[in-house]
Design a binder for these strands. Structure first.
Length: 755
DNA sequence: GTAGTCACTATTTGA
DNA sequence: TAGTGACTAC
């Protein structure tokens, strides 16, 4: 471990230090906004390591990849190399990792497919259709979320069928057959060797609960220290899993949860605050620490936030305070139209940039719904202010990408019916709906996957050749997938499936874009295959095959991409997306009744409280300048609507608000609209090479010895510090300022000895 | 198999 | 308004 010259404990305030050093037994940390939550979590783990807890005994769970990554990086910064052995990641990714090893005990293949939301919906649609149900009443999205919430509450299809509460709710919504859909859905996923996102949790629960081969104690013994970030966002099922891991005879109950009930904004997704309240009941000896000092915002902002959240009755009492006295008061802008709102926000941004010397990436515009972004885009463009938008269609949800990935999935798991349906006739190869329907019917009757039926059906002569060709294509891919790298198979698919050829013959710009996207995916696969750097937690034995590639991307979203963070631009995003972030200047826009709070929430006090917490999250993102805007009228659903100012505006004390300024008419500034948003965002990160590849002659693995100076194609010069028994070298690259130490897998490494 | 038309709906979003 | 999905007609 890296020597720590200073004591990291000195960087903490009294409460933070207590929360960090109370290592034994259950601990609950209630962390207000800007109170150094991640710092506490980081240092607590570092403190565990310094107290000789082996890193692999630490399980740190987060909700997003981004949070997980940040946590790992910060631990690495303080503790150095050992950090990568910590089990830190999202609930879903870590459980998926465990299930890749244990799934066979639950009668799943270990290389099970992960169905994303689209796969689930399409499967549900198919079930609805075959059951002959009304598509309008049985909206696939609604059905999916019912099933999801059933799973998250450990209600099996059988229990669902006899659960009076669920049943009466469904009858009320004219969906009495939902329990049947649920049953069929579960069976079909199972048959396809597929788990949906909820299954990653549910099957993990089953594994521990049913305890085949006494597997539970294996993980109880492994994870001696459990930490959970954003605990207020956990659902019932997640908490049940945590309890199975932590509660057992003679357990030390070393579980630490960090969260803030006031920032719980995901109840619509099944998160329940009850878990926080329940925690102290389940663990009576819990030590509770409240982090109440806010290091982020100035006094007016903190005061307003405190006042607003007080309107919510049900909450853990705490008083957030700051040492940053005074500062700017909150500015409220009243506009007549949504267009004027956009213009005045852009005006104010220009003004702030000049007066306070803010750079664009210190500014964010936060809205309740993504649809609101357009007006702000238009006006920012007029001023030539660069901006970046979060949300919207991600790279992986593009059709052409999903199609190509479907081929890959099928090559790894032929039972994957969703993938099969996607590509059996894409590109068109003459396998029409009637043929597909025949296959599906037979699969249903025999309760097997569609793939298994392909060889048994007597097709018409024309269909038979088409099906035969398709089967041959997939079989070739399967063979290749066994021996070759993911990149080789991906290239084979793109060349031989006909997808790219089809686009090229189209010749439109649209098609051209799609080809570029596919190329970007291929580049991404190649980069992944050639990447010889071990990520934190990655095993040195990991192969570079298709199955492994699919595993790494199945739980990835490109929401979390670092390129966006570095560009100098104003951020536009929904309030939900802004959670955990901070900006010098924040604009919360569209503060009107029916919009924020949303009209969907007006009827229930619970949902209104959640809207208020959402508003609380929004205003506490601001460090120094907070501007709130509302408009008299705006276009909603294609109609002009008139909304009153939001009730939340009235809840802000006058003392914290800037005296209202008269509305000054502003002449429109005409600027050249500049295209700032590239439609296409390549997956591959381009990194400058350290030297010309032509001059580069990598040495064989056996020649590499510790102490040697080497050159790496990407990272440049470095010194081999150590090579372990798995041929993983620890190399220090002096050019890299952050994390100069990298773990390099020598079997894939491109290293040239220089002395 | 596909293009064109019509009807419908409309938060937030992680993995 | 805008985007999607389903149905119809060729």
């Amino acid at each position: 471990m890296k020597e720590v010259g200073f004591s990291y404990l000195d960087e903490l305030n009294a409460v933070q230090r207590q929360a960090v050093t109370a290592l034994d037994g259950p601990v609950m940390v209630i962390a207000g906004p800007g109170s150094g939550k991640t710092r506490v979590l980081t240092y607590r783990i570092v403190h565990l390591l310094n107290n000789n807890v082996p890193p692999y005994q630490i399980l740190a769970l987060t909700f997003t990849n981004k949070a997980a990554r940040e946590l790992k990086h910060r631990i690495e910064d303080v503790a150095g190399g050992n950090a990568n052995k910590i089990w830190a990641g999202t609930f879903h990714s870590l459980f998926a990792r465990i299930l890749r090893v244990e799934a066979h005990r639950l009668d799943y293949p270990n290389d099970f497919t992960i169905y994303d939301t689209d796969d689930s919906k399409s499967l549900i649609n198919e079930i609805i259709k075959t059951m002959g149900l009304d598509k309008k009443a049985y909206n696939s999205g609604a059905v999916r979320s019912r099933i999801s919430s059933a799973k998250s509450n450990l209600i099996t299809p059988k229990m669902y069928a006899v659960n009076e509460e669920m049943q009466s709710y469904d009858r009320m919504n004219r969906r009495p057959m939902l329990f049947k859909i649920y049953e069929a859905y579960v069976n079909k996923c199972k048959r396809a060797g597929a788990m949906d996102f909820d299954d990653l949790l549910l099957q993990m629960f089953r594994l521990l609960y049913q305890n085949p081969d006494n597997i539970r104690s294996k993980y109880q013994e492994q994870f001696k220290y459990v930490l959970v970030d954003e605990f207020q966002d956990t659902n019932f099922l997640q908490y049940e899993i945590l309890k199975l891991l932590v509660i057992y005879e003679n357990s030390a109950n070393n579980i630490c949860i960090v969260g803030d009930d006031a920032q719980s904004i995901y109840s619509f997704r099944g998160a329940t605050i009850e878990n926080i309240l329940q925690f102290t009941h389940d663990f009576p000896e819990t030590q509770t620490y409240k982090l109440e000092q806010n290091y982020r915002s100035t006094e007016h902002i903190v005061a307003a936030a405190n006042e607003v959240i007080n309107y919510n009755k049900k909450q853990i009492q705490k008083k957030i305070w700051t040492e940053k006295d005074g500062g700017q008061r909150i500015k409220i802008i009243k506009a007549m139209t949504d267009n004027e709102e956009g213009r005045r926000v852009a005006d104010t941004i220009v003004e702030q940039k000049n007066r306070f010397h803010l750079s664009s990436n210190e500014i964010a515009i936060l809205y309740r719904t993504n649809a609101q972004s357009r007006v702000f885009e238009e006006h920012l463009r007029r001023f030539n202010i660069p901006y970046k938008i979060y949300g919207g269609l991600s790279f992986y949800s593009r059709k052409e990408i999903k199609d190509l990935i479907a081929y890959m999935r099928l090559s790894v798991n032929e039972k994957d019916d969703e993938a099969l349906k996607r590509v059996i006739n894409y590109p068109k190869r003459g396998i029409g709906t009637s043929t597909i329907e025949k296959i599906r019917q037979l699969a249903d009757d025999n309760e097997v996957s569609m793939w298994e039926c392909l060889s048994q059906i007597k097709f018409s002569a024309r269909a038979a050749t088409s099906v035969g060709k398709f089967v041959q294509l997939i079989k070739t891919c399967q063979e290749k997938a066994k021996t070759e790298t993911a990149y080789a198979v991906a290239v084979y698919i793109s060349k031989n499936s006909g997808i790219v050829t089809g686009f090229k013959s189209e010749g439109t710009i649209e098609a051209q874009n799609r080809v570029e996207n596919i190329n970007a995916l291929l580049d991404g696969v190649q980069e992944w295959v050639e990447d010889d750097v071990l990520e934190e937690g990655e095993e040195a034995t990991s192969k570079k095959g298709l199955a492994e590639f699919l595993q790494t991307i199945s739980l990835m979203t490109d929401q979390d991409d670092s390129e966006k963070e570095q560009t100098e631009a104003v951020t536009l995003m929904s309030v939900h997306a802004a959670k955990g972030l901070e900006y010098k200047s924040v604009f919360v826009v569209g503060l009107e009744e029916n919009l924020f709070p949303s009209y969907m929430a007006l009827s229930s006090p619970e949902q209104l409280d959640e809207e208020r917490r959402l508003f609380y999250v929004a205003i506490t993102r601001a460090e120094q300048y907070l501007t709130l805007t509302h408009s008299n009228s705006r276009y909603q659903f294609g109609q002009m609507r008139f909304n009153d100012p939001s009730r939340f505006l009235e809840e802000i004390p006058d003392a914290n608000v800037e005296a209202s300024i008269s509305i000054h008419r502003q002449k429109d500034v005409i600027g050249t609209p500049k295209k700032l948003q590239g439609m296409f965002k390549p997956l591959a990160k381009t990194r400058a090479l350290a030297m010309d590849p032509k001059d580069f002659k990598p040495n064989a693995m056996k020649d590499l010895k510790p102490g040697m100076r080497i050159i790496h194609l990407k990272f440049g010069e470095g010194k081999i510090k150590d090579i372990d028994d798995r041929n993983v070298a620890t190399i220090i690259f002096n050019k890299l300022t952050e994390n100069p130490e990298k773990r390099i897998m020598l079997q894939y490494a491109k290293l040239q000895i220089i002395e």
